[in-house]
Amino acid sequence: MTRPLLLAAALAATVLTAVPGVSLAGDASKVTLVYEHELPNVPGKSIRGVLVEYPPGGSSEGHTHPSSAFIYATVLEGAIRSQVNDGPVKVYRAGENFSEMPGDRHGVSANDSQTEPARLLAVFVVDTDETELVYPLK
């Protein structure tokens, strides 16, 4: 196996272990770990970038993240309907962003369109030893 194929296989395996518990209603979505790096000036912390692609009508189940995670999300395409904690449900369009603090609950995360896809990039600052980034709400 060539080096690029080995790297692709390793990244795929990392995605499957790093983002379990993300399930979407409607058509299947794509969740991809696109970046991971330990922070050299903050021992024990890493930054991870996760690309979430929602098909038309797609949505994630309500979830939380590790208690060490700070998340900054930017909508890259389309419009995302989101609710954090008991705040209002808001629609974020391409170029807009939101953040989640450690311990926040993300009750709504959905494509606001039934006809167009939507994508967002979620950037996590999280403890390096965290293996799961998403936990379903109970």
Rank of each mutant, 00 (worst) to 15 (best):
Gly95Leu: 04
His63Cys: 06
Ala122Asn: 09
Asn41His: 11
Ile47Gln: 15
Asp127Asn: 06
Tyr72Leu: 05
Pro88Gly: 06
Arg3Glu: 11
Tyr135Asn: 05
Leu51Ile: 04
Ala122Tyr: 07
Gly57Glu: 03
Ser67Trp: 00
Ala110Cys: 11
Asp112Tyr: 14
Gly87Cys: 10
Asp104Lys: 12
Asn41Phe: 12
Asp112Thr: 06
Glu61Asp: 13
Pro117Met: 10
Gly87Thr: 06
Glu96Phe: 03
Glu132Lys: 04
Val75Thr: 12
Ile80Met: 07
Leu24Glu: 12
Phe124Glu: 02
Ala73Trp: 05
Ala79Cys: 00
Asp27Trp: 03
Ser23Lys: 05
Glu38Tyr: 08
Asn85Asp: 10
His37Trp: 07
Asn41Glu: 03
Leu39Thr: 07
Val15Asp: 11
Ala28Ile: 05
Ser59Asp: 14
Ile80Glu: 10
Leu5Glu: 15
Ser59Tyr: 07
Leu133Val: 06
Lys30Gly: 11
Gly58His: 02
Ser29Asp: 15
Leu51Glu: 14
Val84Ala: 15
Arg48Lys: 05
Asp129His: 09
Val89Asp: 01
Arg81Met: 09
Leu5Pro: 06
Leu120Met: 14
Pro4Gly: 06
Ala94Leu: 03
Thr115Arg: 13
Pro43Gly: 14
Arg3Val: 11
Leu5Trp: 15
Gly49Ala: 02
Val84Thr: 13
Lys45Ser: 10
Gly103Trp: 00
Ser46Gln: 05
Val91Pro: 14
His106Gln: 08
Ala122Ile: 05
Val123Pro: 00
Ile71Asp: 05
Met101Asn: 09
Ser46Cys: 00
Arg93Met: 01
Val19Lys: 02
Arg93Gln: 07
Glu96Arg: 01
Tyr92Ile: 02
Tyr72Ser: 03
Val34His: 05
His65Arg: 00
Asp129Pro: 03
Leu6Val: 03
Tyr35Gln: 01
Glu132Ile: 00
Gly49Asp: 03
Thr17Arg: 07
Val52Cys: 10
Asn111Gly: 13
Met101Ser: 10
Ser67Met: 11
Ala9Gly: 14
Ser67Gly: 13
Val34Trp: 09
Pro102Ala: 08
Ala118Cys: 09
Arg93Trp: 00
Leu39Val: 13
Ala12Ser: 10
Ala73Glu: 08
Ala122Phe: 04
Phe124Tyr: 12
Val75Asp: 07
Asn97Tyr: 09
Leu16Trp: 09
Ser109Ala: 14
Asp27Arg: 08
Gly58Trp: 07
Asp86Val: 15
Ser60Leu: 08
